[in-house]
Design a protein around this nucleic acid. Sequence first.
DNA 1: ATTTCGTTACGTCATCAACC
DNA 2: GGTTGATGACGTAACGAAAT
Length: 100
Amino acid sequence: MAVTGEETGAGNSCDSTSSGLAQEGAGAGASARSSLKPPDTLLKRERRLMKNREAARECRRKKKEYVKCLENHVAMLENQNKTLIEELRALKDIYRHKAE
DNA sequence: ATTTCGTTACGTCATCAACC
DNA sequence: GGTTGATGACGTAACGAAAT
């Protein structure tokens, strides 16, 4: 079960400035995860778990998309950098020939 | 063929921020 | 203040590849 290769082609716009994805911290620590909590009724708890399950799925989907977007951006910048370096080399070459 | 190891997706919990 | 949605952290299962 599980390990279903999800990855439905969702939209792809890196903008996600709103996506959060920065928060961090909140370390928690998973200490006594025991059952001294405000007594969730069973139904209430199940509903909450189900909602959170779906939220987590969506959250991971968005994060994956965001990372992919960043990777694309990096690739693009690397290409651009390569092109510029090439261009600079060519210009230097021209300049050198003229100077001679 | 079996074991080991790294990766991936998942579920759950804890926490925060926003809303009512 | 309680509720809700988003997200980081953690543990776990399934899987594939490399090592034995």
